[in-house]
């Protein structure tokens, strides 16, 4: 009994201590202070503008004030606008051109440079270096390459007496030209992501494969690629979200031309809001872009999750 009492009082003391500890972890209002700075900027810079732009998209508005409520009129105007529909198509085409290229070239570079030699380290730095440039510099470089008569491409073709393809003005080539510049610019990030994934594959598996006399192809196909599958999906998702937002390259290299074949959705939004002063229309178009990016990202996410569960 005495023991029981003793142990009882001890457990009561313990409980009291635990109570104090629990108080720290309990949902107390003052804990919000710790997340408040982040929450403040998250709400003011992301949540409020998100809903504000939804509200704007239902109004006839310019940069200097919200006019009258027009319901879904801006959305109807968008779907009647051939240029907008074209810009949606252009954006999908651009994503189709760049995302697989970025993923595959990034993977190949990572596979080739995943070794501990000095030359590999130097080349990793070289391939990543373009990523630190601003879009202005990147497009300047590629305009110097592509421009007719004086460009690098025109000069090289000139040595052989040929005419260079007009990447800045031929309607069939402009998007490809912008895609080339973009892949050159953005290749650093996928390469780095793949490299970090490759370095996390346990060495023991490769040793076991070597003991089994597995060929390099078999090792790549059955060990390396399955091990970095999640990174592959991550790269695809990141790049889809990024490339859907194409703007600077198209604005600076072709201004969306010729005949709007290289005009992406963001450039359409920009022109609607700032050149035509039709902010409501621009807001409506940006809602459509928001939905498109969300669908693409969600689709990728669910596909990757289901595969992950099966595997």
């Amino acid at each position: 009994m005495a023991e029981a009492t003793l142990s009882g009082s001890a457990s009561a003391a313990k409980a009291a201590t635990r109570q104090a500890v629990q108080n720290v972890n309990a949902p107390l209002w003052r804990h919000a202070v710790f997340v408040a700075p982040y929450l403040f900027f998250f709400v003011t810079l992301l949540v409020v503008p998100l809903f504000w732009s939804m509200w704007l998209s239902l109004h006839k508005a310019d940069a200097f004030g919200v006019g009258r409520f027009v319901g879904i009129d801006n959305y109807l105007r968008l779907f009647r606008d051939k240029i907008f529909i074209q810009s949606v198509g252009n954006t999908f085409y651009f994503v189709f051109l760049t995302v697989p290229a970025l993923a595959l070239i990034g993977l190949l570079l990572a596979l080739a440079l995943n070794r501990k030699t000095k030359s590999a380290a130097a080349l990793r730095a070289v391939y990543f270096s373009s990523s630190v440039l601003s879009v202005t510099i990147v497009t300047l470089i590629w305009r110097i390459v592509f421009i007719g008569n004086f460009g690098l491409l025109a000069t090289v073709y000139g040595w052989f007496g040929a005419t260079a393809p007009a990447f800045l003005s031929d309607p069939k080539l402009t998007m490809i030209g912008i895609a080339i510049a973009t892949v050159w610019w953005c290749i650093g990030l996928p390469m780095m992501l793949f490299l970090s994934a490759l370095q996390q594959v346990p060495r023991e598996i490769y040793e076991a494969a070597a003991l089994d006399n597995a060929s390099r192809w078999r090792t790549l196909w059955h060990i390396t690629l399955p091990s970095i599958r999640r990174t592959f999906v991550l790269v695809i998702i990141i790049e889809i979200v990024l490339q859907f937002q194409l703007f600077g390259q198209a604005r600076l290299m072709t201004q969306g031309g010729p005949n709007n074949v290289s005009k992406p959705i963001v450039l359409y939004i920009y022109e609607a809001a700032f050149t035509k002063w039709d902010l409501g229309l621009g807001a409506a178009a940006s809602e459509i872009l928001f939905i498109l990016i969300m669908i693409a990202a969600m689709a990728q996410y669910f596909i990757s999750r289901r595969r992950g569960e099966e595997g």
């Binding site: 305009r143 421009i147 007719g148 007009a166």
Partner: peptide, 8 residues
Amino acid sequence: TKDLDYAA
């Protein structure tokens, strides 16, 4: 001339 921008 074709394919030239303003500066070119």
